[in-house]
Amino acid sequence: MAKTENVYIYKLYERFWHWTQAFLIFFLALTGFEVHGSFTFFGFENAVDLHNKAAWAFIILTVFTIFWHFTTGEWKQYMPTTENLRLQAEYYVFGIFRNAPHPTRKTVLSKLNPLQRLVYLSLKILVFPVMIASGLAYMFYRYPSQGEIKELGVSSLEAVAYAHTIGAYVLMAFVIVHLYLITTGHTLTSNLKAMVTGWEELETEEGTIPESKTAKEPVGEKLEKPGADPKFKPDNYNI
């Protein structure tokens, strides 16, 4: 039987970012698919207005979060790795049904398993940029300036809109799978609890405690000011 311990995984900003982003993505999907014509809820005019406002909130949040990623070095969490990639996939396909242990141990320095790294990285460098770029083009392909309507060189709103729509479907699929995978932590709710409180109950095995002691110690609050904790050296992380 695997032992567990409580580890402080998600820092305050991280959790604020995650939940704000979660809300915004949900809200953007609701308003966005209404603009797309899939259903009527707010009414088209309100849906457009709310979608645009939520989009600005999302962009601002993204800017702040990029800043946070670089100042804290957290961006390294998303560097893809092939190590354990296969094991992780096998875990979800086979091991999970046999109550096998997670193949990747979560630590504060490596909180993402190889599959998560891959998926979140593609969100960050592919899906979000496409959504933000196509969204901005959508907003500004025509704009009023000095008493007339000027145009950005967007020749076809169609292409922009289709890219944005495809991105939206991909994000919806991600959200569905992501919501389900919340339940695949040590217990059904341990992942959820972690993202709410920052503290996660993690499986551990005797003798395989990560070498870095930081994982055992609650360091989160200190780490919010980048560089405040001398022990936090993102370059040292390993899997």
Binding site: E34, V35, H36, G37, F44, V48, S156, L157, E158, A161, Y162, T165, I166, A168, Y169, V170, M172, A173, I176, V177, L179, Y180
Partner: peptide, 28 residues
Amino acid sequence: GAYIPGKTTHAAIDTMGVMLIILSLLGV
């Protein structure tokens, strides 16, 4: 000839998008 949000749809994109969502739901 005009893309009109809320009116214009691309049958292939919407079909594939909905399929993707259905498959995700079925999968989980």
